[in-house]
Design a protein around this nucleic acid. Structure first.
Length: 276
DNA sequence: AATCCCCCCTGGTTGC
DNA sequence: TGCAACCAGGGGGGAT
């Protein structure tokens, strides 16, 4: 499922397979996912070469050549999946498959049962002001995100630490699974008010963010090493989870029973002993 | 401004 | 076994 590490893994795969290829055709099985798909703009991408594939938060950005430097913006939502197949092996549209992009001998396919995903097209100079991108916080693995930023940003914020970490205005890419894992790695109770985090807490949290996401990226990267023709993309990072979905099971660090709560409508897991 | 809650949608699992 | 309730990894948007 699409967490930031998986989106980045997909990006790397697309970089290897689609970069510098020319887009011949865009097929749309429907005209909306979470929001309307700009049909004309999609077809205007035909004949253009893909010159870069980048990622911002959990958005994949396919950059094309041309005067307007159009960019296809793709989000996988909760259940979206992207994969590449050889055109000669192409089969019928699958259930919940919503669009395809033909790049010479390869076809990029998108399926998304819940349709929480996004397909949009913007011009290069609109990227910075796009409504879905303009308010995003720093990348968790980038330079801007560190203990000092975390401490500064959490002052006056009474929201629970876990919810703070999941808010993309503060830092992008941390989903519900990783938020619990990060809090555990940092020894911080998920419900602790963000404003009550000490400088030391922020230092441990900043390290935990990088460590957890990096490890997950390594695991995801291994699993989806060559996803061309692959049917399954479930990573094996689930085997490295220390608290998520482990309610009642012993903490791997101290043996205490992992507890489960609900915060912001989503399940939270933590160790009552290791986390304060 | 910060926070809370609801919603978009389908499918798998759980519990009666 | 059947069926309904519940839950799911995201995240925008509106109300308070």
């Amino acid at each position: 499922m699409p967490e930031l590490p998986e989106v980045e893994t997909v990006r790397r795969g697309l970089d290897r397979s689609l970069l510098r290829r020319r887009l011949q055709e865009v097929e749309l099985a429907r005209h909306d996912l979470r929001w309307p798909i700009p049909v004309a703009a999609c077809h205007d991408l035909r004949g253009r070469r893909c010159v870069a594939i980048s990622r911002r938060s959990k958005y994949l950005l396919l950059h094309f050549d041309g005067a307007t430097a159009p960019v296809a913006l793709v989000h996988l939502g909760m259940s979206g999946r992207l994969w590449v197949e050889r055109r000669r092996d192409l089969d019928a549209w699958r259930t919940h498959e919503h669009w395809r992009m033909h790049f010479g001998p390869l076809v990029l396919r998108y399926a998304d049962p819940r349709r929480f995903g996004v397909l949009d097209v913007v011009t290069g100079n609109e990227l910075g002001t796009h409504r879905l991108l303009c308010a995003l916080g720093p990348e968790p693995l980038g330079e801007e995100f560190d203990a000092a930023y975390l401490f500064r940003r959490t002052r006056q914020r009474r929201v629970a630490t876990k919810l703070f970490l999941m808010d993309a205005k503060n830092v992008v890419g941390i989903g519900n699974i990783y938020a619990s894992e990060i809090c555990h790695a940092a020894g911080v109770r998920p419900r602790r008010g963000a404003h009550r985090l000490s400088r030391d807490d922020c230092a441990r949290l900043a390290i935990a963010v990088r460590t957890v996401l990096s490890r997950a990226l390594a695991a995801g990267g291994t699993t989806i090493r060559d996803y061309i023709g692959a049917d399954e993309d479930t990573g094996y990072f689930q085997h490295e989870l220390r608290v998520y979905d482990r309610a009642g099971l012993p903490c791997v660090a101290c043996g205490a029973a992992i507890r489960q709560t609900v915060d912001g409508g989503r399940s939270t897991y933590y160790c009552p002993t290791c986390q304060r």
